[in-house]
Design a binder for these strands. Sequence first.
DNA 1: TGTACATCAGTGAACGCGCGTTCACTGATGTAC
DNA 2: TGTACATCAGTGAACGCGCGTTCACTGATGTAC
Lengths: 201, 201
Amino acid sequence: VASEPGRVRNPRGQGSRLRAELVAAATALLEEGGSEEAVTLRGVARRAGVTAPSVYAHFSGPGAILQAVVDRAFAEFHQALTASGSSDLRSLCAAYLDFARTRPQTYRVMFGRHRREGTPEMTDARELEDLAGSAAFGLLVEAVAQAATSTGRDPSDAQLRATRLWVGLHGYASLRESVPAFPWPSEDAMFDLLLEAQTSG
Amino acid sequence: VASEPGRVRNPRGQGSRLRAELVAAATALLEEGGSEEAVTLRGVARRAGVTAPSVYAHFSGPGAILQAVVDRAFAEFHQALTASGSSDLRSLCAAYLDFARTRPQTYRVMFGRHRREGTPEMTDARELEDLAGSAAFGLLVEAVAQAATSTGRDPSDAQLRATRLWVGLHGYASLRESVPAFPWPSEDAMFDLLLEAQTSG
DNA sequence: TGTACATCAGTGAACGCGCGTTCACTGATGTAC
DNA sequence: TGTACATCAGTGAACGCGCGTTCACTGATGTAC
């Protein structure tokens, strides 16, 4: 297992660059491997062009690598939703489904794993993750409330309506990925369905 | 690895009983292990009180075991939905969420895995599975259509409305399991939300 | 300006483990004569 | 009614593999004097 041709040792103070490379390698393995089982410590090291023990300088084990992948993904997710122009509910939904469609395995791991009670050392990372998830949901609530007020309706139940919208988006995104044979409506048609529910009642 | 105390060798013509025992063992491991990774060929054999090579008399490998678990689960799922009295939309939804709540890992595997293009030998099993999934969805469409006609609305878009209901139910079921820290509405409140969307527009 | 030293970013070999899979086999039970 | 034989439901030992983890190490680079 010689080091990859391309890789050169990081300079003196920049050892932590490897951390980012490992996260990138793990993310690639996750999407290509089709499952989180593809993200093994040895596999990630191999992909990054480094030997297995090097990983321990940055992560306590395979679980911590996947956690870092999820953390970064949540940050990017939030960024993608923000960049979509969060005032427009429809484009916010489009950004949501876009992320889920282009990075299906990452999305699956973000929202499809049960978050177990972490070890003490993981607590910060999980709180960050929860924060990121909450922040993304907050954007949804905000957009729903704004859509309500701009059409002269009561925005006080925005959280509940945003929850309904979220479960619809998530259900569509994940089932479309898992059951592709089903006659799914297009994203646009799905928006019509879900937002029709929002603007009525 | 001595054979489990309880287990006795099946009588002459009844060798295929082991198949059912293996599926039951795999189902138990899936729910207890918290993930499909817990369903290993050796683990299933161990749980069933049998040595590993015995499994090959009934399954071609670990994938085939999990497939059998899913097949049986879909049959039971359809049965549970039927038994709920499929005419009432609300109790149908309750049966759906009941299954997802009491057997979360099984539910996750049923609807959370991408169905890859199977090997030729798996085709029949997958078609059965798809059939079972479609049959369950058919119950939903039927109940939605019936609810529409009984309230004097147009039942022609029942399939689309049933799809919206399905993604909502699935999103709620799977996110509630994955993100338990979220302030989820109760199942009843969720029904109100989802069915309010159904009866309007 | 030169040199000893500490530090840093990794390497390489080794380990034990559980896994999937194979192979030859065993021992009870039914069947043919 | 007894006995040889075929069949069936498994067993037990062995294999190679990739994994996670450990340990002592190496070699380049900056720093102290």
